[in-house]
Amino acid sequence: MATDAPRSELGEVIVEFTRNGPYVKCSAIHVATGREVSAMGPVHEPKAVERVAIAKLRRALDLPA
């Protein structure tokens, strides 16, 4: 779990990256609920793809942005 502020309110989150050629898939799993979301983007921007996945997870859990 990262320590940055936006993710800290979520609790424990598992983040996994899977590379597929020029793309990377980022899966974010909320440990307490088991809710999983994913996002895809260019392999050279993994942090941006992670931010999108975390934002999707927040929306899926109905948490404020």
Rank of each mutant, 00 (worst) to 15 (best):
G34A: 03
A53R: 03
P46L: 00
Y23W: 15
A60Q: 03
S8W: 06
S38Q: 14
P22N: 13
I29G: 05
T18D: 09
R51P: 07
S38I: 12
H30N: 04
A39E: 06
I29T: 15
R51T: 13
Y23I: 13
L63A: 02
R58K: 05
R35I: 15
A55E: 07
M40T: 14
T33K: 02
A60C: 05
E36T: 12
E9S: 07
M1H: 08
P22F: 10
A5G: 05
G34M: 07
A48H: 12
I14L: 15
N20H: 15
P42N: 13
D62A: 07
F17T: 06
K56W: 02
K56G: 00
N20E: 14
A55Y: 07
L57K: 04
I14N: 12
G41C: 09
L61N: 02
G41Y: 07
E12G: 08
E12A: 13
P22S: 14
V31T: 09
E12C: 08
A32P: 08
D4L: 11
T33D: 00
S27G: 08
G41E: 07
A65P: 06
I54M: 01
V43A: 11
G21F: 12
Y23P: 10
A28T: 04
H44F: 13
R58M: 05
H44T: 11
A65Q: 08
S8Q: 11
A2N: 10
G34I: 08
C26D: 04
R58I: 06
E16M: 09
L10V: 01
P42H: 11
P46T: 00
E50Y: 03
T18V: 15
P42C: 09
R51Q: 13
M1V: 12
R58C: 02
A5M: 11
Y23S: 14
P46M: 04
V37W: 01
T18F: 09
K25C: 12
V52L: 15
L10I: 02
S38H: 15
E45D: 14
L57I: 05
I54Q: 04
M1W: 08
P22Q: 11
V13H: 00
V49M: 01
E36A: 07
R51F: 08
A65K: 11
I54Y: 00
E45A: 14
E50A: 04
M40K: 14
A48W: 09
G34L: 07
L10A: 00
V15P: 03
K56E: 03
T3I: 10
N20M: 15
D62S: 04
R59G: 02
V15E: 02
P22M: 13
D62W: 03
H44S: 10
P6W: 01
S38W: 15
V49R: 03
V31P: 09
V15R: 02
T3C: 07
A60Y: 04
V43R: 12
P42D: 12
C26T: 06
E12D: 12
A60T: 01
E16K: 11
A39N: 06
E45I: 13
R19G: 12
K25G: 07
I54S: 04
D62L: 09
G34D: 04
A60L: 06
E45R: 15
M40N: 14
E9Q: 10
L63W: 01
V37M: 01
V13Q: 01
E36C: 10
V24C: 00
A53L: 03
R59I: 08
E45C: 13
H30C: 03
A60H: 03
S27W: 07
R7C: 06
S38G: 13
G41T: 11
F17H: 06
I29S: 10
K25H: 13
G34H: 04
E12P: 11
